[in-house]
Write a protein that binds this DNA or RNA. Structure first.
Lengths: 224, 224
DNA sequence: GTGCGTTGCCAAGGCAGCGTCAAGATCCGG
DNA sequence: CCGGATCTTGACGCTGCCTTGGCAACGCAC
């Protein structure tokens, strides 16, 4: 999960932000001064920084410059002042976004999500590995001991749906609807045929599958 | 020089933005509808998009989704409405920034600079080599054993799109929208024709391609 | 053990998708 | 206005995928 560095000298605001961010699954570190912020940013390598411009010890632009000297971490600036000139200065100093206080928490969180999303142009390796094969969802390929496995469109589509819900049992109706469309909800034989070919192509022993499992009477499950 | 696509149905605002952006050295293209915006974005490949949410023909989120389906170009959203919920929706749909009308021109320009600065963090090696040929993306040239290979504009465009996503399967719709525009999403025969000429010009054995591969039923893939 | 529903497996026919070719249509420089 | 390059369009086999039906194996309830 992502780490966020919150920099503000108002303890109440820091606490409010911390609570909201933690509730969304972020890890939060806080600093009350510009010097502390630079220090923490260097040691923690956060995924985003929320920075109040009105710090007691340093000018906001200097904090931004201090960060930008060595990192491209997204910086989201908070400020009580509406002054346009200051916004321009902060953005040109290298900030990624600017939010005026008082702000809505939902908006701040959305802007933070947008900033972090941009900050990681590698949206994580969407790659799922088992002991016997590897699925690369973004590249749309499957490899088994080094070699590319050739899958037909339908085979791939079915595998993709299963792999996106690892460990979960997906019932027939759901799989059929997602792969073939709502009109095919009753054609459970399709599933039998295609699960069979997937097992033949991916499982070491198709007769005793280890990853493409049947949950009798309920559906199928993918186990990494 | 950066190109900016301005999307707004208010001619006065479009003119004001155009004048200001041109004065700063940007190249400006404009659209008044969502459909026009998607079309222009596909053909012009702008470096940033300024998008008004209140378009006559499409919902703003749909325009964002239509762009995000195939490009990471920075999107800066304009809206008259202050509603927080709409901001959140636009940002989560993939927008990079959100500015409430009326806005200060200086602030808008600063945010635009920040967005474009973020959007081009890849000076990177714009050169891709395979065993049989080399693609120089920045120079727009391809060489096969020392000699320049002559490509027509369309051939080059198609090769470029494939080469920018090495190893990934790109489906027909995506390739067609990027090379020919959204209106050609169904013309899969274009792909067949141009993949054939690319193979003839680049592959040692066009009948058994090693780098320009077809993923039957799903799309094409470039393998370095 | 028996009966029933569910699942795995196989093979054959129809057909969609792909590669290929060639003939207009269009664009562009001279 | 002409000639060549480029793009568009249609047609035609062919490969291989999807569909379909039938049958055997299996597990579970009785």
């Amino acid at each position: 999960m992502s780490t966020v560095l919150v920099v503000d000298d108002d303890p109440a605001l820091v606490r409010a932000l911390t609570i909201n961010l933690r509730a969304r699954g972020y890890q939060v570190h806080a600093a009350a001064t510009g010097a502390g912020a630079l220090q923490l940013a260097a040691t923690d390598a956060p995924d985003a920084v929320v920075l109040d411009l009105g710090l007691p010890d340093m000018d906001g632009s200097d904090v931004i410059a201090g960060l930008r000297g060595w990192t491209d971490v997204p910086i989201l600036v908070l400020s009580a002042r509406e002054h346009s000139r200051q916004k321009v200065a902060a953005l040109d100093a290298g900030a990624d976004d600017y939010v005026v206080k008082p702000f809505g928490m939902e908006e701040l969180l959305a802007r933070l999500r947008a900033a972090i999303r941009r900050g990681t142009p590698t949206p994580a390796e969407p790659r799922i590995t088992t002991e016997d094969f590897t699925i690369d969802l973004s590249a749309g390929r499957v490899t088994a001991d080094g070699r590319d496995v050739k899958l037909t469109p339908t085979e791939w589509h079915l595998l993709e749906v299963l792999a996106r819900h690892p460990g979960k049992v997906l019932d027939h109706g759901r799989l059929l609807t997602e792969v073939w469309g709502p009109a095919y909800r009753e054609q459970t034989n399709y599933l039998r045929v295609y699960m069979a070919t997937l097992r033949r192509k991916l499982e070491p022993d198709a007769a005793h599958p280890r990853h493409l499992l049947t949950e009798a009477g309920r559906g199928y499950r993918f186990e990494p």
